[in-house]
């Protein structure tokens, strides 16, 4: 119990000490997960909307693959990204392994099925009569699709937040492809693992608090947006 309380007080001291080691790791975490989320949103939202709104051959296969992707263990994603980016892999010439780019790639692959899957469910719940009405008002397919995404905005927002939650807390893939290199590829989750193993519980708890705070603030922002949406509807 003493180790926990000691670690907690130490973590508070560290967080207010403006130690560049701590803030560098926070910055790398936010950068990697932020860019990965941005890319996942760019891929996942249109893909989810496409699957929800259109019929094409092989749609069920794509949907099944997407659902598989939603439950894919991050460490396995990390393994495949590692194999592809390793010197003997097909993308080895990019020299991305143990760089932030490799981590962003892995996290994008982890997050986009989540974003696409939840977006698909949200957009599919939009009233079909509304879509027919929009077409009858002269909307192109693209305009009607955009309107459907707007109609499902709360669900799409939840999809994006789910994607963020999936990557910010992920440790296996970034550890494998990033290598946990101090000052370059060390992020909050990999730092927690490292510092715990070293017995630096204070530092590990400090990182844990930051991670929780980021998740909490993100969820708070989501709730605020949802509430604003509900107020608009009232």
């Amino acid at each position: 119990m003493g180790a926990i309380s000691d670690g907690f007080f130490e973590s508070i001291r560290l967080l207010f000490s403006l130690d560049p080691y701590i803030y560098d790791i926070i910055a790398v975490s936010l950068r990697v997960s932020g860019i990965a989320l941005f890319l996942s949103t760019l891929i996942g939202v249109p893909l989810g909307a496409l699957l929800a709104l259109s019929r094409f051959r092989g749609k069920q296969v794509v949907t099944a693959l997407l659902y598989t992707g939603m439950g894919f263990p991050p460490v396995v994603v990390g393994l495949f990204v590692f194999l592809f980016l390793s010197a003997s892999g097909p993308l080895g010439s990019l020299r991305w392994l143990f760089t932030v780019k490799a981590m962003i790639t892995a996290q994008t692959i982890i997050a986009f099925p989540l974003v696409a899957g939840f977006t698909m469910a949200a957009v599919a719940s939009v009233d079909r009569n509304l879509l027919r009405q929009l077409r009858a008002l002269g909307a192109t397919k693209l305009q009607a699709s955009w309107a459907a995404i707007r109609e499902a905005r709360v669900g799409v927002l939840v999809a994006i937040i789910a994607g963020f939650g999936g990557v910010i807390s992920e440790v296996g893939a970034v550890m494998l492809v990033g290598g946990n290199i101090e000052g370059r590829t060390r992020v909050l989750t990999t730092a927690i693992v490292l510092e715990t193993r070293k017995g630096n519980f204070g530092v590990a708890i400090a990182f844990g608090i930051v991670l929780l705070l980021i998740t909490f603030i993100t969820n708070l922002a989501m709730l605020y947006l949802q509430k604003r949406q509900l107020l608009e509807e009232e």
């Binding site: 009233d127 009569n129 509304l130 027919r132 009858a136």
Partner: peptide, 9 residues
């Protein structure tokens, strides 16, 4: 077309 059941945004 205006349908029987109005579908509004």
């Amino acid at each position: 077309t205006v349908f029987q059941r109005p579908a509004l945004l």
